[in-house]
Nucleic acid binder design. Structure first.
Length: 298
DNA sequence: CATCCGTGGAA
DNA sequence: TTTCCAAGGAT
C-alpha cells in the first residue's frame, strides 16, 4: 500500500502554515516543553499561550516549582481546567528535582514513570525536546491517520495500535540521522490535524496530502456506534469546579458554609464533590476545620 | 476498555 | 439553546 502521508508534501505545507507558537522556539529545555504539553492536554492552544509564558518565567526549573506549595500552583493554573494536571505537574517537579538532577529525563520509559506523563506526553517531550524519532500520537494525529490511511472520518478509541500506525508514517532518512526529520514531521502532522484535517468541517480543498483514502472514498460519514460526548452541566465535575473556584479566589481558608453556597440543588452531590477534592489532594482541611487549597493551611 | 476529570468558545 | 470538542492521564 502506498504512502498516504508523503513527508515532502506535508513538510512543504508546514513550512508555509506553521503557527508561531512560543514552545516551538529553538533551545527550550525539556522542562519548558513538559509544561507546555501538560497544559495542552485537553486545553486549546489559544488558552495556553499566555499561562505558559508566565509559568516558564516563574518556575524556570523543576526545583523552583517544587519549592512552591501545591496551592500556589493550583491558583496559577487558574481556569485552564482539569486542575489535577497542575497537582501532578507539581508532583512531577518534586520528583525531577529530587531524583533526576533537576532535569527532565530523555528516556521515554523513565518519563512514563513520572506523575501526569502518559504515552502521548512522554513521546512528545522525547521528540520535541530531545529530537528522538519516536511516534507522537495525539488526537490530531489519530484523526489524520484515520482519514488519510484508513479512510474513516473519525478515529476509534485511543489504543496502543495507534503507535504502530504512526511509526509506519515516520520518515526514515535513508542516508542520515532519522532524528533530524522526525520532530518536524510529527509537529506537521499535528498541525495538519489542528488546522486543516479538523474534527468538524475539515478543509480538504486546501489539504496538502495528495492521496487521502477518506477523500478518495468520497468522504464517507462516520459509521458504527455514535461517538459519546461527556455531559458537563449538572455533573460532579461542574460542582468541583465551582468549589475550587471559591478557594482559588481567596487568600485565607474558608468556612464550610461558604463552599456549601455554590451548589444547593443537591446537597449529597455537593458533599460528594467536596470529598472527592479532598481525596484527590486538591483541597485540605485545616486544624480549625476550614477549607483551603492543598498546602495552604495551618 | 469505559469512565471520570474543567472550562470556554464556536457551530 | 444545545452540542461538540480541545497537543490526555489515571483508574
Amino acid at each position: 500500500m502506498g504512502n498516504s502521508v508523503p513527508p515532502a508534501a506535508l513538510l512543504g505545507w508546514f513550512d508555509l502554515h506553521e503557527r508561531d507558537l512560543p514552545w516551538r522556539a529553538p533551545g527550550l529545555t525539556g522542562w519548558q516543553i513538559l509544561i507546555s504539553e501538560i497544559m495542552l492536554q485537553q486545553t486549546p492552544v489559544s488558552r495556553v499561550v499566555e499561562p505558559w509564558r508566565d509559568w516558564v518565567r516563574r518556575w524556570p526549573v523543576p526545583s523552583a516549582m517544587a519549592a512552591a506549595s501545591p496551592g500556589e500552583v493550583l491558583r496559577a493554573w487558574g481556569k485552564l481546567g482539569y486542575p489535577r494536571r497542575a497537582l501532578r505537574l507539581h508532583e512531577c517537579a518534586t520528583v525531577l528535582a529530587r531524583d533526576h538532577g533537576d532535569r527532565v529525563p530523555d528516556d521515554v520509559d523513565v518519563m512514563l514513570t513520572l506523575p501526569g506523563i502518559g504515552d502521548y506526553t512522554a513521546r512528545a517531550i522525547a521528540c520535541f525536546a530531545y529530537g528522538q524519532p519516536v511516534p507522537v500520537v495525539d488526537t490530531n494525529v489519530r484523526r489524520v491517520i484515520a482519514r488519510a490511511v484508513h479512510g474513516r472520518e473519525h478515529p476509534g478509541n485511543p489504543s496502543r495500535k495507534d503507535l504502530v500506525d504512526a511509526v509506519d508514517l515516520l520518515p526514515r532518512d535513508p542516508s542520515g540521522d532519522p532524528s533530524a526529520a522526525a520532530p518536524r514531521f510529527s509537529a506537521a502532522l499535528m498541525e495538519l490535524g489542528a488546522l486543516v484535517c479538523t474534527a468538524r468541517n475539515p478543509t480538504c480543498d486546501v489539504c496538502p496530502l495528495p492521496d487521502c483514502t477518506w477523500v478518495r472514498l468520497g468522504r464517507p460519514a462516520h459509521t458504527g456506534p455514535p461517538r459519546k460526548v461527556q455531559k458537563f452541566a449538572g455533573t460532579d465535575r461542574q460542582v468541583r469546579g465551582l468549589l475550587l473556584d471559591v478557594l482559588r479566589g481567596t487568600d485565607r481558608p474558608v468556612e464550610r458554609p461558604r463552599l456549601d453556597q455554590v451548589w444547593t440543588t443537591d446537597t449529597a452531590q455537593r458533599d460528594r464533590a467536596l470529598d472527592s477534592l479532598l481525596v484527590d489532594g486538591l483541597v485540605e482541611v485545616t486544624d480549625d476545620g476550614l477549607y483551603c487549597l492543598a498546602g495552604e493551611g495551618n
